[in-house]
Each structure stands twice: as structure tokens, then as C-alpha cells.
Design a protein around this nucleic acid. Structure first.
Length: 289
DNA sequence: TGGTATGTTCCAAA
DNA sequence: TTTTGGAACATACC
């Protein structure tokens, strides 16, 4: 489910309830979800304060306060300080991970895989129908996130930067845009949406884009992500937050419906095992590419 | 019953 | 070496 805009939305929603709080208890109902292990996550986070909650690509990142006692301090990586905390809890939601605050006057949430208790008595539930999500405790953030590519909403993501990405290899455009080591945070929905906005066919070879097409693609990626964040992401079922972006999708999930721009029916096919949606008229594939 | 799913990773083949 | 395809992970829904 979640791509960059959904993860960003979740971080913004959770931040007031988590920053400054301390974990008092962590229990897991799905051991394989915890990395490196349930015990290691528990040792790493219980008793620790969450200094900051932020997002890197599709990861939810919690910076943990450095340990307060001498025994723990010894274990901390050298150089850790307020600006560069050395201990982190990372959550990757994969296909179906989601957070929910425990509450008595609601139905029991389904697929609860982990429970986090906080020092103010609140309880955060982590649910994950398909059990693909990962909860990682690490003292080496770069070991987890170091291979991720550029953040598409950062200033550094210029047309020139995208141009380098596209020309540095010879791949079909869509699989390249989905590659987290190249651009970090795009998923199947927003890649399809961005390519539609840019008028580009998903199988175009990346190195063949003109500089004008590259500029259009950069603008399209940023616009679609910003719009999705503004609408709090895309919801596909009742489970998720109530984001409203699905109302504004142009191609994803609109197979057979008329293109909003030219009325041509939207087509769906498969690239790299991913359902792919295009308007064949707005996203032509000219011969040589 | 079989096909599908918004993600990632690993392996094999080209 | 790079790119691509397939399977795996695990479950629910249509």
C-alpha cells in the first residue's frame, strides 16, 4: 500500500503522539517481522525516548535518545550526539503495514503484529495483514538506508540529477523509476501517474529521453507526490487513514475508463510483474525507442 | 479455484 | 557487468 506520500502522511499524523515519548514495552506477535530479532528490538527501544520521527524513502525512522546510563553509553557508536543520534527504530510498511492507536471504544483491530506501550499510557498497535513489513532496530542507520537513491522532493532532485540517473544506464523507464536505489520513495501508483503526466511510455529506454522530456518527468514526479501528500495519500480500502488522492488518479486503477485528457480508454498491461496503466494516446511509444 | 494485490529481495538467465 | 524475469515472502479478497 504505502508509497512516499502515504508514509509521509503517517509520519505527520504520528509525530505529535510519539516525539518525546518513551517506550515502556514492546511485544511482538510475528517474530519474523523484527530485525535482527524481537529480543534485540526490545533491548534497543524499551526505556528509550523518541527524539525525532521522520521519513526516508518509504521508511518511518525514529531517532532514539542516547542512553541515559553509563552501561548503555558504552555500547553506543562513537560520535553520537543530538544532531547525529546513533540508535534508530525503522519501520518499513511494505504491502500492508499500518499503525493504529489502541482504543477501547473501537472494534478490535485485525492483524495486530506488534504492540508498543508508551510512558504516557498510550498504546500503539502495528498491524500487517500480509506479514511483509519489517521493524528494524539498528545502531547503523546507513547500513539500512545507505543504498537508497535520491529523495524526489528534495532540492537536489534537479533535472540535471534526473538526467544523470536516466543516462547512467539502459533500462526501461518504469522499472528504473521503481528502483529504490535510484530514486527513493516512488511505488507503482505514483510511477504510473507521473509517467502519464509527463506523457511518457513506461517502456521507453531511459537513456533516450530528451532534456525536455526529462524536465517534464521531474516536474510530473514532484507534482504528483506533492498533490498526494496534500490529500493525505491514496486509500484502497477502509483500513487506511482516509486519504483522498484516489479521486485524482489519472491512470492507476482506471483500466477501460476514458482518459481525463483525451477520452481514449486507459489500458493496463504488465511490466516487470507490475500492473501498469497508460493512456495509449497521451503516452505514445515512437518507433526507435 | 485461480488470479490479483500499493513492496522488496534473491537467484537465474539473457 | 547489467538488465530482466520469476519466485518467494503470506494473506485476503474478488
Amino acid at each position: 500500500m504505502p508509497e512516499l506520500p502515504e508514509v509521509e502522511t503517517i509520519v505527520r499524523v504520528l509525530r505529535p503522539g510519539l516525539e518525546g515519548r518513551r517506550f515502556t514495552r514492546y511485544t511482538s506477535r510475528w517474530a519474523k517481522q523484527a530485525v535482527p530479532s524481537v529480543a534485540a528490538v526490545r533491548r534497543g527501544i524499551v526505556g528509550r525516548r523518541i527524539r525525532r520521527l521522520w521519513r526516508r524513502a518509504k521508511y518511518i525512522v525514529m531517532d532514539l535518545e542516547d542512553a541515559g546510563n553509563a552501561a548503555r553509553r558504552k555500547r553506543i557508536v562513537r560520535g553520537a550526539d543530538d544532531r547525529h543520534p546513533s540508535e534508530h527504530l525503522l519501520i518499513h510498511l511494505r504491502m500492508s503495514g499500518r499503525f493504529e492507536w489502541a482504543s477501547q471504544n473501537k472494534d478490535k483491530p485485525r492483524h495486530v503484529r506488534a504492540v508498543f506501550d508508551l510512558d504516557n499510557g498510550r498504546r500503539l498497535l502495528f498491524c500487517d495483514q500480509r506479514k511483509f513489513a519489517k521493524i528494524t532496530y539498528t545502531t547503523d542507520l546507513a547500513a539500512v538506508t545507505g543504498k537508497l537513491g535520491i529523495e524526489p522532493l528534495e532540492r537536489r532532485f534537479t533535472s540535471a540529477a534526473l538526467d544523470r540517473v536516466l543516462r547512467g544506464r539502459s533500462r526501461q523507464l518504469k522499472p528504473l523509476l521503481l528502483d529504490q536505489t535510484v530514486i527513493a520513495g516512488l511505488g507503482n501508483i505514483y510511477v504510473d501517474e507521473a509517467m502519464f503526466r509527463a506523457g511518457l511510455h513506461p517502456t521507453v529506454r531511459s537513456e533516450h529521453l530528451t532534456s525536455e522530456e526529462t524536465r517534464r518527468l521531474r516536474t510530473a514526479i514532484r507534482a504528483v507526490l506533492r498533490k498526494a501528500i496534500r490529500h493525505r495519500g491514496t486509500s484502497f480500502d477502509e483500513a487506511y487513514l482516509g486519504g483522498g488522492m484516489q479521486k485524482y488518479l489519472d491512470v492507476y486503477g482506471r483500466t477501460g475508463l476514458p482518459c481525463r485528457r483525451c477520452r481514449t480508454p486507459i489500458e493496463r498491461f504488465r511490466i516487470a510483474q507490475r500492473g501498469t496503466h497508460i493512456c495509449p494516446n497521451c503516452q505514445p511509444l515512437d518507433g526507435k525507442r
